[in-house]
Amino acid sequence: MSLLLAPVIGAGAVSTLFEVVRCRPCSDALCKGRVVKQFFKYAGVGLLIFLGFVLAWGLIEPRYLAVENEEVAIVDLPRAWDGQRVAQLSDWQIGMWLDNPDTAEDAAEVIIEERPAAVMLTGDFVYHRGDEEDRVEQFGKVSEVLRPLVDSGIPTYAVLGNHDYAAEKPDSKLDRELARTVTRTLRRAGVTVLFNEAVPLRPPTNAPANGPDELLYLVGVGSHYAKNDDVEGALDDLPRGAPRIAMMHNPDSYARFPARTAPLAVAGHTHGGQIRLPWLPDFSYQTFAKDGDVHVDGWVEDFGEEGNRLYVNRGIGMSLLPIRVNCMPELTMFTLRRAEGEAEPMAVGR
């Protein structure tokens, strides 16, 4: 970026400095006016070049994929799960103009190569309802991404997001037929779709044990915008004190988990802010566009109840504008570690 801007800004600065020195002895208003005009001329050109570079890079960055490797300790994690990995993908937003389903396909290929024990897909598979032709194309692309992932034999689970209900805002009218179509598409591809429920995850066959005491549970919470995130109902599906991971689309659902019921919770929805300031990733367009706290990326501190931990994935796709700046699409790989139970045991469950 600096290489592109240097010739223009440098030439403008030198020229303007020369004019200032030349005009300094006099008080000619016309002379000084030329200096000001010339300064804004070069500053304007430099700004246009900068904005052009940002726009060009913003269209390129969605085609790259960042694989983030995280390690998380879970109290009393079954020994068969110690060292196992689970993957998270979120927010494909297929159907948006200039969308990037190829990046989702690249992420699926990485997952297949890495062979985690399970895959969590945290919603927003499509961008909008569209017309009938749009829907056929959108769901075809969703199936194309899912097919090799499911065919690989890796257990894959999903929850729905707000766009899967065509809800761009919390008060948007819900398209429940679209949500049913998304659900059917996922299930036909072999994905287990969770609606406020918990399912057992069995460790891979190469794990040291594979008995009933070696089960880890996955809790899937419904869409927050659809007012379908029944955390209490989802936790009721768990055996009392069972180790678990929780998945949801919107980070706001995480606040509903009682203390020590979500030692690892994952969400998406925010796209990491999508357009973020270099070296200041906490400042994005969402920081200025939304009221209250904004939880857009990575581990979220000082949010939720004691003993719970939330990770927010940046997602693959985009919203409003088909660009990403300083916010590369993300595939997250979590390595699970066993922590001995010093904390109060997880008490919610049947």
Rank of each mutant, 00 (worst) to 15 (best):
W97R: 13
Y64P: 15
V300D: 02
L336G: 02
D171C: 06
E114P: 14
K290G: 04
P278N: 05
C26L: 09
M318C: 11
V199N: 03
R240C: 14
C23K: 10
G349A: 04
P116R: 05
L48Q: 07
V300K: 00
A108C: 06
Q138D: 15
V193Q: 05
L321S: 12
A107F: 00
A226G: 15
M247L: 08
P101C: 06
L59S: 14
E306P: 06
A118S: 04
V266W: 00
P101E: 13
A262T: 08
E305C: 01
D99L: 01
P170L: 14
S253F: 14
T287G: 09
G95H: 04
E330R: 06
I49K: 13
L264V: 04
V75H: 15
D213G: 15
K41N: 07
V221P: 03
E177C: 01
R147F: 09
T181C: 07
I154H: 01
A6R: 10
Q274P: 13
L121F: 03
G222S: 11
N196W: 06
R338C: 14
E68L: 01
L4P: 05
N210G: 11
L51S: 11
L218C: 10
S2P: 09
I111P: 00
V86L: 12
P155V: 07
E306L: 06
D124V: 05
D171A: 02
A13P: 02
G130L: 12
V20C: 12
E70P: 09
V54I: 11
S319T: 12
V20Y: 06
L238C: 10
G153D: 11
D76Y: 06
H249R: 05
E114I: 09
L336K: 01
Y285I: 08
G220T: 07
L4Q: 04
L235S: 02
Y285E: 11
W299Q: 03
V35F: 14
D175G: 14
P203C: 11
A43H: 12
F40E: 14
L65T: 04
T205A: 08
E71I: 08
L277H: 00
A267V: 01
E105C: 05
A255T: 08
W57R: 01
T205Q: 07
A13R: 00
T287S: 09
G33A: 15
I245H: 09
I245M: 06
W57N: 07
A11D: 14
N313F: 02
G307Y: 00
V221T: 05
I74W: 08
C23T: 06
E137G: 02
V296Q: 04
T332Q: 15
A259I: 02
E133F: 09
M333H: 10
G307F: 02
D131Y: 11
E330H: 10
V8R: 09
A209L: 07
D297G: 03
D282Q: 12
L89T: 06
R135W: 05
L77I: 04
V221R: 08
A207H: 08
V193N: 02
P200C: 10
G123Y: 01
Q84R: 13
E344W: 13
L201C: 07
L59K: 10
R63I: 13
L264Q: 01
F283C: 03
L47C: 03
G273T: 03
N250C: 07
P278W: 03
G315F: 11
E68D: 07
N206G: 08
L47D: 01
G161S: 04
P345L: 12
W57K: 03
A289P: 02
E61V: 04
H271C: 09
N228F: 05
F303Y: 13
